[in-house]
Nucleic acid binder design. Sequence first.
DNA 1: GCAGTATCACACGC
DNA 2: CGCGTGTGATACTG
Length: 656
Amino acid sequence: MDSIVPCLNLNLYSEPTSSSSTTIPKITPKIEPLDEPPPFLPTTTYISHTHPHLPTHHQTPSVPPPPEPDVSSEFNRISELFRSAFAQRLQKYGDVAILPDADPISGAIVPYSNPETQVSNVVISPRGGRKQDQRSSELVRVTDLKPEDYRSFRGGIRRTRMIFDSLRAFFVAEDEKCRDLLTPQRRLRVDLKVATLMKNQGLWLYRDKRIVGAIPGVSIGDVFFFRMELCVVGLHGQAQAGIDYVPASQSSNGEPIATSIIVSGGYEDDEDAGDVIIYTGHGGQDKHSRQVVHQKLECGNLALERSMHYGIEVRVVRGLKYEGSTAGKVYVYDGLYRVTDTWFDVGKSGFGVYKFKLVRFENQGQMGSVVLKFAESLRTRQLDAWPKGYVTLDMSSKKENVPVFFFNDIDDDHEPLYYEYLNTTRFPLHLYDHGAKGIGCDCVGGCLDICSCANKNGGQFAYDLNGILVRGKQLIFECGPHCQCPPTCRNRVSQKGLSNRLEVFRSQETGWGVRSLDLIQAGSFICEFTGVVLTHEQAQIFTMNGDSLVYPSRFPDRWAEWGDLSQIFADYVRPAYPSIPPLDFAMDVSRMRNVACYMSHSSSPNVIVQLVLFDHNNISFPHLMLFAMENIPPMRELSLDYGIADEWTGKLSICN
DNA sequence: GCAGTATCACACGC
DNA sequence: CGCGTGTGATACTG
């Protein structure tokens, strides 16, 4: 049963993929290029609902495609469409970057207009007057994205998700405040609130096209903490239902077409073997998720059947139990599957259920859910049962709270082990000369918003109660050794060191790299970038010796991108305070270093540098703390923007 | 475990 | 036939 059972029309769709690993199988005959562009040319298949040309099993690749425009121009049109959705935001970032340090107003943030106004602003789409809050019925497939196009789409996804996360943190903080004042109340469904707000602002992605197949910018293995996030990025449009589909009424031939499903174990008759899923149709359950009536072949069930009939690929998202998530669960995008079989069966309850066999397309890269489970299994594994390639299970020699792994299964290079592991940056001793005078707060019982350390941050803490960075700042003041507050104080986050199990690994492509064995939530602290601090003068001497130095001032101000809600709140200005002079020190990592300096460079990084001060008072010598800019699944390489001007695809040899 | 909410499709009705 | 509104279904979250 584990082999693929082709259905009647499947042979049309299993055309071999190109050699590019990011390419998914082209699945429709209509993708046949008209004027034989090179195989790399981006092609967009366009199944317009105005064209009565849904593929049927009678069609062969030789059937002429519908009278659509040239494929590449069609691609460009759609690409531009999506891009334009983010252009405004990019503009905003530009503005922020050159904002003079003028406005001293605090973090008082007020929506610039009431929700009603906002709604009315976006109801009419700028193009064509169609309602924005309704999904398009236009079926589109985007394939063979060029790397730069993919990056562009991914940038859009990332910014949108960052807004989601930031808004969530913002509303959670609001909610916390309210609860202090009022009587105990139900917790707000912040996820819903955020999603609605973003929808009203027109920030949901891919609503003007109904995408079959991969969502541009979403990678296999991407992890989501909330179901609504899937709606926001266009992976799955249903807030609760497990099958998303184009309804019959909107379909060109009057038949519904399924585009994505969520497998989260809610139906007892599901059988999930990874590459092959026996998926139960929806319906027939009572409030307690018990099957109480027969399912019918309608709605999503019918749509899945139709997708099988037409060979339409289906996105699969898995819901997995995960303690670290507020909902106790995360959603992982596992790639594209095809429905190969369907039948009506008697479920365990004795009631009839529809079953669908889904088989994963090959050449898609490892499933995110498999990686998550694998990483989880390592947590409890005996030392001798670790996979080959783990040279040491803690290169920090217990200097970090959690082990730092060292993995190399491609050669004998053990170079990182020859350096002394430095778990915190070594600053010049004179920075500590001034002692404790007036540095710390007196909050013996724990810090509140009125604490002096909060004041230094502009009247609020930079982190939420879970230690998530709410908003990037030029400099963050954490409570420190001179404060009276307990170690559990919420304003001590980055000083506590690692909480995720990081791993230095060797790869053919990037040389040394860093990845995590744990899922890292966006906004959470990862590690410090440590080294021995050299003053300007000392650095000049060192440079003459040819030693490699890291210059903190060269890291771009990526912190400004994190938590920027100017898209949502027009007067969401970045507080000018604290404002610090450009950093003028260097870090020597030639003898002592930590895991951070093995991170690869990327111009679209998933890790940002946030400057933090806590153990001394000199704003010219902050710690370089690294935070996750997006949810980073286990085994995905971490990357930093080192401020290198050129487009750099390989590993930065910053430590060599 | 329940309830308070989302979305969406579909059904009406004008 | 298009648009608005109401209703029912649904693998959610706190």
